[in-house]
Write a protein that binds this DNA or RNA. Structure first.
Lengths: 350, 350
DNA sequence: GCGAGTACAGCAAGCGCTTTCTATCGAGAG
DNA sequence: CTCTCGATAGAAAGCGCTTGCTGTACTCGC
């Protein structure tokens, strides 16, 4: 029923071995023969059987990209850059690798499942993006998986994710702590003293690092930590909206709200506005990531720009072995403070 | 070196066949034996060899999701919903399918390449999302590929994409034409007569349908088509910004700008604002899709809501055979007009 | 207590491809 | 004019798993 290598071989009057060699192009084949084989492939409309090929060659051209939330541009932008680098710029250039992105939805189990599935497929490389979950057993399980993957010849790269100790995975991590710290320092510099913080989900490294940076700035300025000024939520707009209302309820005298990321900041702005507060006259707002829409909000959002696309591209190149890993296998990527219209001097009245 | 089925069999003192049956669970195996096998699997840390398994069984558990631009939430939201439906809600539930999203970047070649790659892997199903490219040869090539995929047993579903004639692909298409028409009618109803239109890339179905809806409304209102009022660009913010400037240059007396989608509308707002025009007092702006951020812009964006997540979920279910295909294999999905703050009555002065 | 039926378990034949090793054919080298 | 070497092409042995078919114990029914 389906066309196989043997059919092509018969039609081209050569052996299956020769057809395979023409298709893989890593063995000398006379031009005339190659020509004949390619014509047969075309005429029969032959499509290589991937599983069979991977089985025989003990390798595959699958590259997996794990993301926490595919609907979030933060991951979309990175994934896009990684994939572009893996598949090559042109259409079918770049060795025909199948770069696929897997959506874990932030679930540790799903992350592990995907890793196993990728291991099953003997993936050529795996790129994990975004913050990790800070659960010891889970972290250990992931580390073990990664170790096994590398052992099996799969290249593992972490992009925007902290290093995984005990593994050979190359890590390109964002300096979330430093970025958050500079952001809060900016607010403090403007004169703010009562700042609310909307954090992400509690068990993630990204959440913790950003929060730590924020608190470090506060501490350095001699402001004591007040747990009532921090609310945890998801990394989305809705969460920012609700958290802001909660923050306001707890202390209506806030002069600034720092959000875990730009989407959250967007929700915060909406909540503030609906509460009759002006931005930044009454309350300043700051985000994180500098997603494309952030420059277009009104007022435009002060945030920390993370070079998502650049980091992704680099991760992709490393995964393909086209760029060397950074010394020590770890590189920290700094974020750049983008001061825009949503932050200003706190009003005297407050 | 690597652990194989045979190793597990040896350890559990059974035949490889039995191990395979325990793992696939579609054949009676005594509880005690199963127990023993599972223990051996665990002890040896055995991972099934995907390619070998797919080869022998002539099927695989790969499901491909093709998107035009993974960095665009429009696709991200759909992909997320599709994937959730395919992998099941829980972590490892749902038969362990590997749902992967492939980013075509809107390139026809890449689309074909991915389709071939998926065909190679003997994918269980393929979901194509978003508008198609309107190039006859390419459309034919895609149709041929889809036909071959269905023949090979791969289920093919189109989500937010027009039907592919000559194929068995189930199509869930968005009523872009109708939505666009209602949107423009809304503007017309407010009294606008000089409306600019920022269209997407010329060769896409989505672009054409939305534009047609817009023009249909215009024509019905007795407004003749003026090609100078339409500018084509990409589906992103930047493009909207530039196109708006161009539109303004051509005719500064515009009272409304209709954008191909919300991101474009965002750029349009920025350009308008920088040009000193108020929204909607001087110029009304409308988008399309109703992405999450659209409700949070200032003023909030009038747009057409497309049930992205619902459509994706349905497509996913159909792809998994968990829901019946709509009669005729085609279902049109309507968009809902969301009238918000960015559109208003044109100012008398203009 | 015996034949029939049932419930498991194993054998072995592939699935379609890659790749090592071997064979063949010329062309220069000696 | 024979020998050797380079360039190609083929034969065949798997890669690790699935599954149809073939046993082999038992369990029942009468």
């Amino acid at each position: 029923m389906t066309v196989t290598l043997a059919d092509v071989a018969a039609r081209a009057q050569v052996s299956p071995a020769t057809v395979s060699r023409v298709l893989n192009g890593n063995y000398p084949v006379a031009a005339a023969t190659r020509e004949r084989v390619l014509r047969a492939v075309d005429e029969l409309d032959y499509v290589l059987n991937g599983p069979a090929s991977s089985l025989a060659a003990a390798t595959s051209d699958l590259v997996g990209i794990l993301v926490n939330d595919i609907a979030d541009p933060f991951f979309g932008i990175m994934a896009s850059a990684i994939q572009a680098e893996i598949c090559g710029p042109g259409g079918r250039a770049g060795g025909e690798r199948l770069a696929v992105v897997c959506n874990t939805g932030g679930s540790p189990e799903r992350e592990l499942t995907y890793l196993t599935l990728l291991q099953r497929q003997r993936a050529a490389a795996v790129v994990l993006t975004g913050g990790a979950v800070e659960d010891a057993p889970h972290a250990a399980a992931v580390a073990a998986k990664l170790r096994k993957l590398t052992e099996a010849g799969t290249r593992v790269v972490l992009c925007g994710r902290p290093p995984a100790p005990g593994t050979d995975a190359v890590a390109l991590t964002f300096d979330n702590r430093g970025g958050a710290r500079r952001l809060t320092e900016h607010l403090l510099g403007l004169g703010h003293r009562r700042l609310g913080y909307i954090a992400g989900p509690g068990e993630r490294t990204t959440t913790r690092h950003r929060l730590e940076g924020h608190r470090a700035a506060l501490t350095a300025a001699g402001i004591e930590e007040d747990p009532r000024r921090t609310v945890h939520g998801r990394y989305d707009r809705q969460s920012g909206y609700e958290a802001t209302l909660e923050l306001l309820r707890r202390d209506a005298s806030l002069t600034a709200v720092v959000a875990a990321n730009d989407s959250v900041a967007l929700g915060a702005c909406a909540a503030l506005r609906e509460s009759g507060l002006r931005i930044p006259a009454d309350v300043s707002v700051a985000g994180f990531d500098d997603l494309p829409f952030s420059v277009d909000t009104v007022p435009s959002l002060t945030t920390v720009r993370l070079p998502l696309a650049e980091a992704g591209a680099r991760a992709g190149r490393i995964a393909m072995g086209r760029e060397e890993a950074p010394p020590g296998g770890v590189a920290a990527i700094r974020g750049e403070l983008m001061v825009r219209g949503s932050t200003g001097v706190p009003s005297a009245g407050k």
